[in-house]
């Protein structure tokens, strides 16, 4: 079991990543809190050391995505608010950011993951395929489709 200092550091270091993944999957604050607790409790109980920071970060991404999927599968998600409302709630977003994020949220779920991991976290398609356990060609396809959709929605060039 990890110590308090270690978990606090992890919350500081990976909290934003977990939060962003929650944002592209979940519909409300309560669910986000659930995911935080699930993910960091797993970290608390995860005794094996990580090979590197990258390894640790990838672990957090994978665990968070799985936790989100599990939550969405559960019966209670039907009572939650629609996805689009979330970004509106986040009052401190700029209009520009809100527009971009709404465009991302308009994508199918599998494309959202890929867009986030590629454009924000900087993972390459082969890295994403390993992280998500999917065929690398599927990732390329997802990326290409997402790029097209975003271009339509936001205008301008998306470089991949």
């Amino acid at each position: 079991m990890r110590g308090e200092e270690e978990t606090n550091q992890a919350i500081e270091r990976y909290g934003d990543t977990v939060r962003r993944l929650c944002m592209i999957h979940l519909k409300n604050e309560a669910d986000t809190q659930d995911i935080f607790q699930t993910v960091f409790l797993k970290y608390l109980l995860h005794d094996r050391p990580f090979e590197s920071r990258e390894h640790e970060k990838a672990w957090f991404i994978r665990v968070t995505l799985n936790a989100c999927k599990d939550l969405l599968k559960s019966f209670f998600r039907s009572r939650t608010v629609p996805l689009e409302e979330l970004t509106n709630k986040a009052a401190d977003l700029t209009d520009e950011a809100r527009e971009v994020l709404n465009a991302v949220l308009a994508l199918p779920q599998k494309e959202r993951d890929v867009v986030y991991l590629h454009y924000y976290e900087g993972y390459t398609a082969p890295e994403i395929s390993r992280l998500l356990g999917k065929n690398v060609n599927t990732i390329y396809t997802n990326l290409a489709r997402a790029r097209e959709r975003l271009k339509e929605l936001l205008g301008g060039e998306v470089h991949g």
């Binding site: 919350i11 909290g15 944002m23 607790q37 971009v100 994020l101 454009y119 271009k151």
Partner: peptide, 22 residues
């Protein structure tokens, strides 16, 4: 576009309340 996505995601942070509760 890359930059726009980056900046947009950059504005998302874990709320202090969520972190404290966790």
């Amino acid at each position: 576009m890359d930059e726009r996505l980056k900046q947009a995601f950059d504005q998302i942070h874990a709320e202090e309340g969520v972190k404290a509760e966790t």
